[in-house]
């Protein structure tokens, strides 16, 4: 060595934390970088296909049955298919591999070796994944409404309903992202576990008319949707009935205002709070977790 070396090099350098503004710059760089990551790969194509599916189905339905009720179509696609099938899948695909994907691709080292704490790393990457999932959910919902109501009267009403549906879907997919993000840290087989969760919990339990459905995300989104949007359609004998109440097992005969179910603000609080709790737990897990990267040796 020919260079000048301080007599006591260890004391010559003080590894001080990044200033707050630099932490924000790092976090923003990580956020935009993760969004760019989501734009690459085959996942994007598969997701695009899924996102277009409800709109294509509604076009198909209208083409094959011109007399189909827009409200029924809206309910079946925007409030059954999208929340129950598309939203959890979107969240599962984007949020389950927040750090797991980097670990599998062995690129996580480049992130861990930056002056960003692990909890912050997780939270920022979760936000980016959430952004991607929410944008896709909103695109899907908007296209579905456009496919259902284009050419029909009451477009302003349809636009308002679309906006409300978008807000509900955005909230739901954000909550799912937080949950699947945590699940991704708890199990290596997160896709299998996630699909089982979607099928059993959000699919089966949410549709049982018992208190067990209180643990599902979809129950709260349905309550919000039910209170925000009318789902009354004319019946076969000139009467009307609420298709949402029937399909979602809301006991409106004895409790027409659903006073015994959580209020809208409570539903929003539960979804946001649940998401925050999942995120906090996941960040805590990240703080103390070692992310093993397969070296050729270990492989």
């Amino acid at each position: 060595m020919t260079s000048s070396i301080p007599e006591n090099p260890a004391s010559a350098v003080a590894a001080t934390p990044l200033p707050r503004c630099n932490v924000l710059q790092s976090a923003w760089a990580l956020y935009t970088f993760t969004l760019r990551q989501h734009r690459h790969g085959k996942r994007w194509l598969i997701m695009a296909g899924l996102v277009l599916l409800p709109a294509l189905l509604s076009i198909l339905a209208r083409a094959t049955d011109p007399g189909v009720s827009g409200r029924v179509l809206e309910f079946d696609l925007a409030f059954m298919f999208i929340p129950q099938g598309l939203l959890p899948l979107l969240a599962l695909v984007y949020a389950s591999g927040i750090l797991h994907d980097e670990q599998e691709q062995q690129t996580i080292t480049y992130l861990l070796l930056r002056p960003v704490s692990r909890p912050l790393l997780y939270v920022v990457k979760l936000l980016a994944a959430m952004t991607a999932a929410v944008v896709l959910a909103l695109v899907s919902t908007t296209l579905t409404y456009a496919a259902i109501y284009t050419g029909q009267i009451h477009l302003a009403d349809a636009a308002m309903r679309c906006l409300q549906a978008c807000l509900i879907d955005g909230l739901a997919v954000a909550t799912y992202c937080c949950f699947f993000g945590l699940l991704g840290l708890l199990t290596r087989r997160v896709l299998v576990a996630g699909i089982i969760y979607i099928a059993l919990v959000e699919g089966l339990l949410a549709n049982l008319p018992f208190a067990i459905r209180l643990i599902t995300v979809i129950y709260y989104t349905r309550l919000i949707a039910y209170r925000a949007l009318p789902f009354v359609v004319p019946g076969a004998f000139g009467n009307t009935h609420n298709i949402a109440a029937d399909a979602w097992h809301f006991h409106i005969s004895g409790d027409p205002t659903l006073a015994h179910d959580p209020h809208t603000w409570m539903c929003v609080t539960v979804l946001l709070g649940g998401g925050a709790l999942c995120t906090a737990a996941a960040a805590l897990l990240c703080r103390n977790r070692e992310f093993y990267v397969k070296t050729p040796d270990k492989a």
Partner: peptide
């Protein structure tokens, strides 16, 4: 758990992984 230290160290990892 000392991210501040990462400002003073660099690692060239073994694995042939890049973006």
């Amino acid at each position: 758990n000392n991210p501040a230290l990462n400002r003073s160290i660099g690692l060239c990892p073994e694995q042939d992984a890049l973006y």
